[in-house]
Design a protein around this nucleic acid. Structure first.
Length: 271
DNA sequence: CGTGTGCCCTGACAGC
DNA sequence: TGCTGTCAGGGCACAC
């Protein structure tokens, strides 16, 4: 169930094992996830050395010494399993190095794997369409003001649009809007300047706190059978329908549906 | 074009 | 115990 912090944590965890290591074997247990695996994936990756790992939005990047980058997306249910004790039905792709095995496990198969020339990442269509990284210099109140101008859809759905900000998902949009005191149903183009000024640091704070939580579980990845992609977090609104708002007395968290997905918010302090 | 809807897929859980 | 319905942290194709 990965959003940006989970992907970031996954990438950091994988990096400790994979950077500088040679991939000795690539195994595909099926032909596709959301899309077919690239036809030349096995050929290009086998024998290649991993130079670095990085992240863009919710995509993880494994950069290889052959001018190619393997890009993975974990969809809703994807995770990497390190040195699994037993195989899982949904281990769809295996990477082996001299010391470890990495299994890309994704029961729902909403994830994807692509192979892109490292020098052409910026123009890869999926990346070219993305908005700024929320933890980079590009996310500013001015950017949001311009990107949301005239939009009549809700601020909740606008923030889920990866072209506006890249990497937010259902959980952290709910959390950030709560922190900023903005009602999720508010028309995106009508969110006020002061609200946008609060929203940017709220997004940053929520994501950074979550990455910190994830990082604190990194040591667990060293375990045999360690699994990347999941860690416990405590949320202020997500999944807390009916529970009291943590910011004041007398309000209960409400759940509504937007765009076919759940939104949680406090009807008292989010306006 | 912007916006809304449905679908891809499996697993977990509640209720009967 | 099984069945059924609902929901799940994402993204895309499609209709208007």
């Amino acid at each position: 169930m990965p959003e940006l912090p989970e992907v970031e944590t996954t990438v950091r965890g994988l990096a400790t094992f994979l950077e500088g290591k040679r991939i000795t074997r690539v195994t595909l247990n099926r032909a596709d996830l959301r899309r077919p695996f690239p036809a030349d994936l096995v050929q290009v990756m086998t024998g290649a050395t991993v130079t670095s790992l990085s992240r863009r939005a919710k995509y993880g990047l494994i950069n290889l010494d052959r001018g190619a980058t393997m890009i993975f997306h974990l969809g809703m249910s994807g995770r990497w399993r390190i040195d699994p004790d037993t195989p899982d039905t949904h281990d769809h792709l295996l990477l082996d190095t001299a010391g470890h095995r990495f299994a890309l496990c994704d029961p729902r198969r909403f994830g994807s794997v692509d192979l892109v020339a490292t020098g052409k990442l910026e123009t890869w269509p999926q990346f070219a369409a993305l908005g700024p990284e929320p933890l980079g210099p590009g996310l500013t109140p001015a950017h949001l003001k311009a990107a949301l101008k005239g939009k009549v859809l809700s601020i909740k759905l606008a923030l889920l649009d990866q072209r506006i900000v890249a990497g937010l998902g259902n959980i952290y949009v709910c959390e950030a809007l709560w922190r900023a005191g903005i009602r999720p149903t508010k028309e995106a183009g009508k969110v006020t300047g002061p609200q946008l000024a609060r929203l940017v640091p709220a997004i940053v704070a929520v994501l950074e706190a979550s990455i910190r939580d994830g990082g604190s579980t990194l040591r667990d990845y060293a375990r045999p059978d360690g699994e990347l992609g999941y860690f416990a977090s405590s949320f202020d609104v997500y999944g807390r329908e009916g529970e009291p708002c943590r910011r004041h007395d007398g309000g209960a968290i409400k759940r509504i549906a937007q765009g076919g997905r759940s939104t949680w918010y406090c009807p008292v302090c989010q306006k």
